[in-house]
C-alpha cells in the first residue's frame, strides 16, 4: 500500500500517454492487421474474413510480381544506403577526429543536409540525376569522366542504387556525428596507455579505438536501416510513384489510391514486421544492457 502510494502518482501522470499510445500505436496496428485479413479490395467495403490470403497473394499472385519487385528495390536501396552512410560517416568522423583546422565548420557543413526535408532535396536531386545529358552527367562530362555518365535511377537493374545517393548525402553527416561522439567518448587513458606501450597509430585504431566504436556502429546501422525500410518521401519526390522505383511504402500508397485497402494493409504489416525484426531485438538488448550497468 505504501509502495503504491509511492509510485502511483507517477503511473497516473504517465497514463494519458500510455492510453494514447496503446490506442494509436498498438490498437491501430491491430486494426490494420484485421483489415489485412479481410477482402476489402475496393471502396464498396469488405465482404469478410479471408485469413492470410492477401499475404499469400502478394508473394505468389501479385501481377508482375509487383510486390517481390518492390522488395528487391528496397533491398538494393537499403544496402547502398547503409554501406554509403556508414563508410562516409566513419571516414568523415575519422578525418575530423584526427584534428582538422576549422573542424566546427566542416562538421556543420557535413551535417546540414540532415536539416532539410527529403521533399525539398528531392527537387534538386531529380535534376542532378537527369538520365539524359544534364545534371551530374554534365559534370562528369566536363571533367573528362564521361564513362561515369549513366541513366541513374532509370536503370532497370541498379536504378535503386542511384536512388539511394540522395539518402546517403542526407544521412552520412548524421552517422558521422554518431561516430564522432563515439570517438570522443573513448577515455583518454586508453589512448595514452596504448601510446605508452608504443603502439603505432594504425594499431591504436585497429586494436583500441575501433572496437570501442562497435556499439555506436550498431546503433547507426539500426537507425539508418529502419529509416531505409520506411523510405517514401524521397522516392515520391525524385521519381514519383512508378513501377521502376517502387518500394513497399510507395506500393501502400498506390494500393490505397485504387481503394485496395486489404492489400495496402497487408503490405503495411509486412513492412512493420521487417522493421520489428530489426528493432525489437535491439530494444530488448539495450534494455538488458542498461540493467547490467
Amino acid at each position: 500500500m505504501r509502495r503504491m502510494r509511492q509510485w502511483g502518482p507517477g503511473l497516473l501522470l504517465l497514463s494519458p500517454s500510455l492510453i494514447l499510445l496503446a490506442v494509436f500505436v498498438y490498437g491501430l496496428i491491430a486494426w490494420t492487421a484485421k483489415v489485412s485479413l479481410s477482402d476489402e479490395h475496393n471502396a464498396r467495403g469488405s465482404k469478410g474474413f479471408v485469413g492470410l490470403q492477401n499475404y499469400v497473394d502478394l508473394f505468389t499472385k501479385d501481377i508482375n510480381d509487383r510486390f517481390l519487385h518492390s522488395l528487391k528495390n528496397l533491398l538494393i536501396f537499403t544496402v547502398v544506403f547503409l554501406v554509403g552512410t556508414m563508410l562516409l560517416g566513419l571516414l568523415w568522423a575519422f578525418l575530423l577526429e584526427r584534428g582538422v583546422k576549422g573542424e566546427g565548420f566542416f562538421r556543420t557543413v557535413y551535417l546540414f543536409p540532415m536539416a532539410v526535408s527529403f521533399v525539398a532535396s528531392g527537387v534538386v536531386w531529380r535534376w542532378l540525376m537527369n538520365p539524359a545529358d544534364g545534371g551530374l552527367n554534365a559534370v562528369f562530362d566536363g571533367f573528362g569522366l564521361g564513362f561515369l555518365q549513366n541513366t541513374w535511377w532509370t536503370n532497370p537493374d541498379w536504378g535503386m542504387a542511384a536512388m539511394a545517393l540522395p539518402a546517403v548525402w542526407q544521412l552520412s553527416g548524421y552517422v558521422m556525428a554518431l561516430f564522432l561522439a563515439g570517438f570522443r567518448g573513448i577515455p583518454q587513458e586508453l589512448r595514452e596507455a596504448a601510446a605508452m606501450d608504443g603502439a603505432s597509430t594504425y594499431r591504436l585504431y585497429r586494436n583500441v579505438i575501433f572496437p570501442q566504436l562497435t556499439p555506436v556502429a550498431l546503433s547507426a546501422l539500426i537507425i539508418v536501416g529502419h529509416m531505409s525500410m520506411k523510405m517514401f518521401d524521397l522516392i515520391m519526390s525524385v521519381s514519383g510513384a512508378q513501377w521502376l522505383t517502387e518500394v513497399p511504402a510507395v506500393y501502400v500508397w498506390q494500393a490505397l489510391l485504387t481503394s485496395d485497402y486489404s492489400k495496402a494493409a497487408a503490405i503495411s504489416i509486412i513492412l512493420l514486421l521487417l522493421v520489428a525484426v530489426v528493432i525489437v531485438p535491439y530494444l530488448i538488448y539495450t534494455n538488458r544492457a542498461e540493467k547490467n550497468r
Binding site: 494509436f24 490494420t32 520506411k230 520489428a276 534494455n287
Partner: peptide, 21 residues
C-alpha cells in the same frame, strides 16, 4: 523498463501500418 520499451517501439513503426484506420 518494459513500459518504456513499449513506448519506444512507437517511434520506429512505419506509419503506414496505422494510416488506414
Amino acid at each position: 523498463d518494459v513500459v518504456f520499451t513499449l513506448i519506444l517501439f512507437g517511434m520506429f513503426i512505419p506509419y503506414q501500418a496505422v494510416m488506414i484506420p
